[in-house]
Design a protein around this nucleic acid. Structure first.
Lengths: 165, 165
DNA sequence: CAAAAAACATTTGAATACAAATAATATGAG
DNA sequence: CTCATATTATTTGTATTCAAATGTTTTTTG
């Protein structure tokens, strides 16, 4: 029987491994496409929801608007997105993919989350429950059930409803 | 019974929550001490292992040496650490906490990991096994059992040996 | 309607973070 | 011993991230 101390240490190690893996994966995707993780992420969202306001994009990415402006600047320079001042409300800037942007995106790999989703979907239901419960406990410990996820991807909608261990 | 799709989505959401929570926590510690997460993290490591080489500190933090140099620059300006060119090998720079650094550190809160460890330790053994197994599965999916953890903390030593669900 | 408040995108300034290049020193091969 | 190689810290340049301040435009209030 492992000591409690040892179990806790193992858990922490594995959390770190997950952090690290997501990070490494995003760096690999960067090498392949010339797009950084956040840039690719923004484009994936645009592919689904363009045209979209800057503020809405920021919300979708759970990032500060100022951060998104920077990312958009660089994507614009590369000719992958276009900004248009909205006719109806001239405070608003509408973002859309250019044709080049769409082409590039087709050849781009999934964001880190894609890897996770693909991997998880191959698992039997029983294992999914196991993983889900473990993470729920962690979330409970951290006291962040209410926090809207953030980072890592775009899928919105977070109605919860889970089973217990 | 939840659909597999839904389960996977829930898992991803919770992973994002954990990411987010760790990040938020580090920002909170920053407000309290005037030290950023990485700065505090570096000092915690120094408290345990100083004097230490820059390259060794970088390894302990799983960061690029260039990044650590920047962090040390800012800590040095605040008078919390001291750099000394090593006598034995003049390429090496030894880092140590100053007395002021030690004082500040005493009043500083734990790094995000501290919160996790404390929370985990209150859980019954059964729950720990549940969390550990869930994370093990994730790590397996990501194919990173071999990756030395990284991020989040400093404790070294990672022999593994776990039970199943 | 006019002034105040809010919403929106952006700019500015600071801290990470990495890769690549540099400079200084140490070690190894011949 | 000398030259090539390796190690060590640093500098430089780019990207991400946030908070705070700014400038426009819209909405709300009085």
């Amino acid at each position: 029987m492992m000591s409690k101390r040892k179990k806790v240490a193992d858990i922490i190690d594995n959390i770190r491994r997950v952090f690290q893996a997501v990070h490494e994966y995003s760096k690999k995707a960067e090498k392949k496409t010339g797009l950084t993780g956040p840039q690719l992420w923004a484009m994936k969202i645009l592919a689904d929801t363009a045209p979209i306001k800057v503020s809405q994009l920021a919300k979708s990415m759970y990032l500060h608007p100022a951060t998104v402006v920077g990312i958009l600047d660089r994507l614009e320079v590369k000719g992958l997105i276009a900004r248009t001042r909205s006719k109806g409300d001239r405070r608003v800037v509408e973002i859309d993919l250019t044709n080049l942007g769409r082409e590039i995106l087709e050849r781009a790999p999934e964001v880190a989350q894609g890897l996770l989703v693909a991997g998880l979907e191959t698992l039997p239901n029983k294992d999914l429950v196991c993983i889900a419960d473990g993470l729920s406990q962690l979330v409970k410990i951290l006291g962040v059930q209410e926090i809207p996820p953030g980072l890592l991807l775009t899928t919105e909608g977070h109605e919860s409803n889970r089973e217990s261990c």
